[in-house]
Design a protein around this nucleic acid. Structure first.
Length: 591
DNA sequence: GCCGTTTTCGGCCCGACTGTTTTCAGTCG
């Protein structure tokens, strides 16, 4: 675990504790924000602490700064420890129970001495919650269900699985005659790497058809259980336990609803602040002048009877707030609103900008297709080049190539390349970065290759200092063009190397070494925040599928999504270079 | 707790829904 992660967790817990203690909700919100800032950022906290730049970060004030500094110095925070000691630790997991919030948890704790999920379950069984103010039979039932739900469907799901489930719900919805439009919203539309639930917004041709659309939705084949059903929203659990929420709005309000439910929460908060500055209010129905909105007639589930400034399309809403429309993948409150105000939004990389894949495997090591098969599949995607990069000798389990076999393999790759028309194969290798930063082949062997990806596969639990030195040493090798999956993290699987990213970025930028966004789920490594940090430091990225079969190339869109969330343009990514330009990039480092 | 070019004090985003309620608090997204 890195320092940033540790501190981010500390502030998140701090915020939860304050909620439970009933301190000002704004304090808790402020600490949640600090937690998120720390999680997203790639700057070196220790360094920022040393040279006093910590306070320049928006959202981190004097209190947070003090806590961070003390934590770096002593490994803990006095402020946090005091608060943590005053609240039983078992209360925090209770916040994950749907339907149960800080107020009720605090009530149970103070009035009934309940300090854990287990004690809560027991109290419900024994009936000791009866008689508490505001807690009736239905509330207790809901909590009971919430506890069961948390145990059963606690986890988030990866983007790939979530998209599949989402499509299976979206497609039949689009076929309903009452619907004029239906789109994903929420984290799925923003293409986050993991998804908690699927959000869909749909527009009605006739505003009175909400009830029937809802009724049809909850009967789709994938639905396992109905959680709620009404004329404006419905909620279901699919087979496999994924929650899917549907919002139903009149066509005139579709843009505002899509914007609102796409989020992120932080992005929307900023937008509503902008609206207020302009004497307007923004909600899921539209953007309204405050005066007109306050005067207007309002009925739950229906748009207010005021003329909106904007509501039909997202473009209208953003434009009325003085902003360019922006891709959902940018809407994370990472500076996109300022950029949109100043006309400085990046022209994001698109799938069609990719001219080739620079990390792939064949039957020579652990792939399932031959060089020819992989080359034909890449050509069929319109690629102009493909780097064949089988494993080095240390990857015994993956049938890694010995030096002799590699030299033979290089000849074979070049033979196939000469034979093929319309695509060039680069003879490459994915060489292991050993625990101490040495590479798995001597330079003399690497010099024979057209292209080298160097990746960490073993010793992925090193401390930050060892791990960083190890990757730095690989970056400094003149034959290494790309660091493959730099942290080795596996989503839901392992943390990966706790790298000091500012040092890695500086070395990569100085030496002309690209860092990979490995597009294969569950890697997606670098992640969006780190890729964003790399770009800010002037590093080039390489987006690769690490394909082990011809189907493997199909994962490229997920890597593109990570790059888009990192604000990458085609100019930032070496896969978008023309071949001569790419060759120059390689040669520059070898000089 | 954080922030500020109308503010260094007084704000801080919005609506739906639910349950326990005779007017509102808590939770959620």
């Amino acid at each position: 675990m890195s320092l940033n992660t540790d501190l981010s967790d500390l502030f998140r817990t701090f915020a939860a504790l304050m909620d439970i203690k009933g301190e000002s909700a704004f304090k808790a919100i402020a600490f949640s924000k600090v937690s998120r800032i720390l999680k997203d950022m790639t700057i070196d906290l220790e360094e920022a602490c040393r040279n006093g730049t910590l306070k320049d970060l928006e959202g981190i004030g004097p209190s947070s700064q003090r806590i961070i500094e003390q934590y770096i110095k002593t490994g803990s925070s006095k402020d946090f420890n005091e608060v943590a000691a005053s609240v039983p630790a078992g209360l925090i997991p209770m916040l994950e129970i749907p339907g149960l919030g800080p107020k009720t948890i605090s009530l149970f704790w103070k009035e009934r001495k309940i300090t854990s999920v287990e004690e809560l379950t027991a109290a419900i069984e024994k009936g000791t919650l009866d008689g508490l103010k505001g807690i009736g039979e239905k509330k207790i039932d809901a909590i009971k269900q919430g506890i069961a739900l948390r145990a059963q469907a606690s986890g988030r799901v990866g983007i790939v699985a979530a998209l599949e489930i989402g499509q299976a719900m979206l497609e039949p919805l689009r076929k309903l005659p009452a619907i004029s439009r239906a789109e994903f919203a929420g984290s799925l539309r923003r293409r986050c790497e993991t998804i908690g639930d699927v959000d869909i917004v749909c527009a009605l041709k006739n505003p009175s058809d909400g009830e029937s659309v809802s009724a049809a939705f909850v009967k789709f084949p994938l639905v396992d259980r109905i959680l709620g059903q009404g004329p404006t929203k419905s909620s279901v659990l699919t087979k496999g336990g994924m929650q899917v929420d549907l919002r139903i709005v009149p066509a005139d309000n579709f843009g505002a609803a899509l914007q609102y439910f796409t989020g992120s929460k932080d992005h929307n908060t900023r937008l509503r602040g902008l609206a207020q500055d302009k004497k307007m209010t923004l909600n899921e129905w539209g953007l309204y002048k405050i005066e007109e909105y306050d005067r207007s007639e309002k009925k739950p589930g229906f748009p207010p009877k005021a003329k909106p400034v904007a509501s039909k399309t997202e473009e209208d809403v953003y434009q009325a707030l003085g902003l360019e429309w922006m891709e959902p993948l940018l809407r994370e409150d990472r500076g996109e609103i300022d950029a949109a105000q100043n006309g400085k939004l990046p022209k994001l990389i698109q799938l069609k900008d990719i001219r080739g894949d620079l990390h792939s495997h064949t039957t020579a090591s652990d792939g399932q297709a031959t060089i020819e098969q992989m080359a034909h599949a890449a050509k069929a995607l319109g690629y102009e080049f493909l780097a064949v990069t089988d494993h080095s000798k240390g990857q015994i389990i993956a049938n890694g190539l010995s030096a002799d076999r590699l030299l033979q393999h290089i000849k074979e790759i070049r033979r196939v390349s000469d034979k093929m028309k319309g695509i060039t194969l680069l003879a490459g290798c994915e060489v292991d970065i050993l625990a101490d930063g040495r590479l798995d082949f001597e330079d003399a062997i690497l010099a024979e290759l057209d292209f080298v990806v160097a990746s960490p596969h073993i010793a992925l639990k090193q401390d930050a200092s060892k791990a960083t030195d190890r990757i730095l040493r690989a970056i400094e090798n003149r034959y290494v063009n790309v660091i493959g999956h730099p942290t080795g993290r596996i989503i839901f699987g392992r943390e990966g190397l706790p790298l000091n990213f500012p040092r890695i970025f500086k070395a990569a930028a100085d030496t002309g070494t690209a860092l990979e966004i490995n597009a294969a789920f569950p890697r997606l490594d670098l992640n969006d925040a780190n890729a964003h940090g790399a770009l800010a430091a002037g590093v080039k990225l390489s987006i690769n599928t690490d394909a082990h079969s011809t189907e493997g190339f199909g994962e490229m869109p997920f890597g593109i999504n990570v790059a888009q969330r990192a604000w990458a343009t085609a100019g930032d990514v070496i896969n978008c270079m023309k071949l001569p330009q790419l060759k120059a990039f390689i040669q520059n480092k070898r000089r």
